[in-house]
Design a protein around this nucleic acid. Structure first.
Length: 477
DNA sequence: ATGTCC
């Protein structure tokens, strides 16, 4: 594999073998060494072999090894001649992040964080297999899958503004519950309003620095403000949809005569029966995830009010934005100077639409889309804004987080004999968690430096820094 | 990520 430096932030994986396009990796000289040791670069090259891929197989600076496609990967396929692949979306369909602002300043919660985080831990179910308080009839469950966030708001979990400030208004329109397996439906029947485990979290933070005052003001962010950041996905339902369609496509792809460099790249042409069914089922899982995050936000509002003894009005917890970072979407982009309809796979990558795109909430359309980048639980999270450069280069996409550097196993090994909770507390971060090994697997050293990751996408111009948030309290699954 | 092995 030959890798050529383009500039300070871009490296090209030269096309070889059956690659249709080159790979482009957004990174820095410093982080490239970490990437080189991984299988992830081979995965970037593998994706370039798939039929109908346009421009390049791209990777963001938080790239790491994933199922088939790398996490941090962006790949767009021609809508007419290209493929869709469950591995290009990931097991957690519409895993995503939402950020809420409040009218509280950090002084207002000083000395009250312990009570708050205990209440959040009590009220927001977390951990593998956790179940929530929202019970769905089979009929309601299908409505959730078809309607996404709207179902939650219609049932008292949130406001119309929440929907305005959610990517795709919290609903992919082509969702068809009839193509979702009974097993997936069963797994999702009692998990709405639950956090999940692994890297999913609920974080109370404070706005620590502002880089782009105009965008920060439009997004409703100011220094010293208390914020809530939620990271969760489609739980067991999305996992099952992915699993079901990997099996379908694994079989199907063998009939197509596409020679895959990796079986995990199982795919189908977008217009095939299998491709269309996957996209319909994926949309259902995406809608489930938006509904889930909407209910989680509602629980946060209730819990802040209860734990701090304040009114909804005094709290004024408003959704800044909700972004998904595991999805395949039909979008219009300019490719080689002409408009094309494409299927963009963002796997551990965030939409980063620049100013003017009609898909962005009217409140933000002039400045660009808010982008939410969670870091590790001890360091920081970032708010960015989408740019015209992202539209030109990356199909309007950017990074999604810090990205792992240690496997879960390696993190466990390195944390032996330490108290990660104590270490975090010493750094001013209160943590509550469910899983036995979650904190160790998720310790700050298991991740790349999020500031370095963000500096790459900012430096490359595919998004722009708006604000940095510092965690004060974290609930993990 | 995941009822972390139907």
């Amino acid at each position: 594999m030959q890798i050529t430096r383009i500039d300070d932030y871009r490296w090209r994986v030269e096309a070889f073998g059956r690659m249709n396009v080159p790979g482009i990796v957004y990174t820095s000289a410093r982080m490239l060494d970490q990437v080189r040791q991984e299988e992830a670069l081979n995965q970037v090259a593998n994706v370039a072999v798939l039929p109908g891929i346009l421009k390049a197989s791209m990777a963001m600076p938080d790239i790491h090894w994933g199922y088939g496609f790398p996490i941090g990967g962006v790949a767009a396929f021609d809508w007419e001649s290209g493929v869709v692949s469950p591995g290009g979306v990931g097991y957690d369909i519409n895993c995503g992040v939402r950020l809420a602002s409040t009218d509280l300043q950090v002084e207002d919660v000083r000395g009250r964080m312990k009570g708050l985080v205990d209440a959040l831990y009590r009220n927001v179910p977390s951990g593998v297999g956790s179940t929530g308080s929202v019970k769905l009839s089979p009929k309601d469950q299908k409505k959730v899958l078809a309607q996404g966030s709207q179902w939650a708001v219609d049932h008292g979990y949130g406001t119309d503004e929440d929907i305005d400030h959610t990517e795709d208004r919290g609903c992919l329109a082509h969702a068809d519950p009839e193509v979702v397996s009974q097993r997936a439906l069963d797994r999702g029947s009692n998990q709405l309003g639950t956090l999940g485990s692994g890297n999913h979290f609920l974080e109370v933070g404070v706005v620590e620095e502002i880089f782009h005052p105009q965008a920060a003001e439009i997004f409703g962010l100011r220094l010293g403000q208390i914020t809530v950041l939620l990271h969760s996905g489609s739980r067991g339902l999305g996992y099952q949809v992915c699993d079901d369609f990997l099996a379908v496509m694994g079989k199907h792809v063998k009939t197509l005569g596409i020679e895959l460099p990796d079986r995990q790249l199982a795919c189908a042409y977008i217009h095939s029966e299998q491709g269309r069914r996957y996209l319909k089922a994926m949309a259902c899982a995406a809608n489930y995830a938006w509904n889930n995050r909407q209910i989680l936000l509602h629980r946060c509002r209730e819990t802040f009010e209860e734990a701090l003894g304040i009114s909804p009005r005094a709290l004024n917890m408003r959704l800044v934005y909700d972004v998904c970072h595991n999805i395949a979407k039909k979008e219009e982009h300019i490719v080689d100077g002409r408009p094309r309809t494409v299927c963009v796979h963002r796997k551990g990558a965030t939409r980063a639409f620049g100013p003017g795109r009609s898909e962005i909430s009217a409140d933000y359309r002039e400045i660009g889309q808010p982008i939410l980048i969670p870091g590790d639980m001890g360091t920081a999270s970032y708010v960015l804004v989408g740019t015209e450069q992202a539209m030109l280069e990356t199909f309007g996409s950017t990074c999604h987080g810090a990205g792992r550097v240690l496997s879960r196993k390696a993190a466990l090994r390195q944390s032996k004999g330490r108290s990660i909770a104590r270490e975090l507390e010493d750094q001013g971060v209160l943590v509550r968690w469910t899983g036995r090994s979650t904190l160790a697997e998720e310790m700050p050293e298991a991740y790349k430096n999020v500031s370095q990751v963000v500096d790459v996408v900012h430096g490359a111009g595919i998004s722009r820094k708006v604000a940095r948030l510092k965690p004060l309290a974290v609930v993990k699954g």
